[in-house]
Design a protein around this nucleic acid. Sequence first.
DNA 1: CTAAAATCCTGGTGGC
DNA 2: TGCCACCAGGATTTTA
Length: 265
Amino acid sequence: MPELPEVETVVRGLRKPLIGKKFTDVIIHWPNSIATGVTRLKKDLPGKKILSIDRRGKYLRFNLSDNYTLFLHLKMSGDLFVVPTISDPDPHARTIFSLNNKHELRFKDPRKFGRVYLVKDPNTVIGKLGPEPLEPAFKVQNFINLFSKRKGRLKPLLLNQNFISGLGNIYVDESCFRAGIRPARKIESLKEVELVSLYKAIKYILQRAIKHNGSSFDYVYRGGNFQNHFSVYGRNGELCSKCKNEIKRSVLGGRSTHYCSFCQK
DNA sequence: CTAAAATCCTGGTGGC
DNA sequence: TGCCACCAGGATTTTA
């Protein structure tokens, strides 16, 4: 489900209720989601204190005491809530992290694609991720350099987390629209001036989406409203806001793709 | 090599 | 109302 702006929004919301708390237990309703093993998680997590929470790509990272790191990936339908232990049970809560203050962190995930990792070495989880698009150190020249020797279509490359981290289906389509580039463009055909505008578009779209607390959908609503500002995503059949031609939909890399065939070259 | 398709899953929607 | 095909914000693996 969530891409960089949604994960960032979740992280910001979890800091206040979680930092300084300790895990006391973990209840696992879907063992397949525990990527680093049910036994290890049950044994090693209780007693660990949450020192800080941040994000790397689409992974939430909990920095714990004793140099442990807990990573959560929400995949398509995951979400996280901190609620009192006495709250009504949630049928979609696949993993429940008990805390030492009569509250618990619930990993809600209807589609069960989400994953939990508890590790000592963070690189085993995030070691291969590409650069963070919003890091100040990530300059336009760094972005341009990424494209050398790359082949194929633009969109699948931007979705590759080892190329650049954090982008997903929505924000790739929106960024391509803003840059005036078709998602299906061949990498080799991209001019430097186009990569510059793509770089700017990605930063602009992600920052603006974070300001709106990300995007919400019917079945995963978390308060964000950037879905009301989509230019092309999910708007196939509607008219382009810039040129009034029809927004098209195609399938690229197995993903639904939205673009304006007039504005995007 | 690239690229599409299948896979992991549930749930909502729209057509008939 | 029921049934069914299809769709979904991700990412990896298999097949062509």
